[in-house]
Amino acid sequence: MGVALRDILEDYRQDVDPGTLRGAIAVDAFNALYQFLTIIRQPDGTPLMDGEGRITSHLSGLFFRNINFLESGMRPVYVFDGAPPDLKAETVAKRREVRDAAGERWKEALVRGDTEEAYRQARQSARIDDAIIASSERLLDLMGIPWCVAPSEGEAQAAYMAMQGDVSAAASQDYDALLFGAPSLVRNLTVSGKRRFRGRTVVVRPERIELAAVLNGLSLDREQLVEIAILVGTDFNPGIRGVGAKTALKIVGKGEFEKVLEEKAPEFDPEPVRSFFLNPPVSTDYRLEWGEADREGIIGMLCDEYAFSTGRVEAALEKIGVRSGQRTLDAWF
């Protein structure tokens, strides 16, 4: 879910043409997979499945979206979450409860024949399991797209890679990447295009937020931005009741962060959360090498194993020059 900083970041969100997002970008893998699993569903909320009942929504999103990326000249690298920090235990438990409850309401709505409610509840019940992770990593390997597993939070690892200059940006829906120090955050990358939202069609465009512009515009340093997030609430702490981003900005701007915490949450120690954002566990052991897409391997996996349309998969591969007697993807960069 991330941290609710939208109200103070509104002026720093810049729409970007997807075709201009070239070069290497680190994508928060779990964030992207949740988007695919949430959006790619039947009208009653049922995810895409093969004949054996295995979910394939994530594979459809991962394959066709990456084809678009590669065709436009972007080189994605996917960063998967490692073990969640102890600080996140309460958030993880609450999210599990929400998904479980939504799953039950989905079943009840299906029994009633309430398709609209079923779809809404189904979206909230999306979950990532070991099979989804393994099949995603396998497909990325076949597509010649690198991936790595972070020691902890994927967003922190993506931010580190961007700070090192190994990628041009971190891609995620959440603003946490800015707190972890990503110089550039790209949102809506995996969900851009036309989408149905509350009964109407909307166009979702990628947007970029530059950390330096945010800090300069708000007269903050990164530690102060983290303090604002702590007051609002993060995945690692509940925040102060009734304090939104704008109020938190005023509090931090006046130098009253510690004072407000002492008054409103005297038993809470902000240091572990602050330290985690400013110095998160990251790895330097990653390789950014993009290879050739394995045409036969991809068709074997998606079409033979998961019953994807052979015609659609072959047509998609041809967009990036992969056909019988295929060309290397390097020709596109």
Rank of each mutant, 00 (worst) to 15 (best):
M1K: 09
A4G: 11
I8K: 01
D11T: 14
G19C: 11
R22L: 12
V27A: 04
A32L: 01
Y34H: 13
F36I: 03
Q42V: 09
G45F: 02
F64H: 05
F64G: 01
E71F: 01
M74P: 02
R75C: 10
Y78F: 15
Y78Q: 06
D81W: 05
V98P: 04
A102I: 01
A102Y: 02
R105P: 05
E108F: 08
E108H: 09
A109S: 11
G113L: 02
T115S: 06
E116V: 11
A122N: 04
S125I: 12
I128D: 08
A134L: 14
S135M: 07
R138V: 08
I145D: 04
W147F: 15
Q157R: 10
A158W: 04
G165H: 08
Q173D: 07
D174F: 03
L179W: 00
S184D: 10
N188Y: 12
V191P: 04
G193F: 04
G193H: 04
K194Y: 13
R196L: 14
R196I: 14
R198H: 10
T201N: 13
P206W: 01
E207L: 12
E207C: 13
R208F: 04
E210R: 15
A229Q: 04
N237P: 00
P238K: 02
G242S: 15
G244C: 07
A245P: 02
K246E: 05
K246M: 03
I251E: 06
G253D: 06
G255A: 10
G255Y: 07
E256N: 13
E258Y: 11
E258R: 15
A265P: 08
P266L: 11
P272M: 11
R274M: 13
F277Y: 12
P281E: 02
E289I: 15
E292I: 06
E292W: 07
R295V: 00
I298N: 02
I299G: 03
D304W: 10
A307R: 09
S309A: 09
R312Q: 09
A315K: 14
L317K: 07
K319V: 05
I320T: 00
R323A: 10
G325D: 13
A331Q: 14
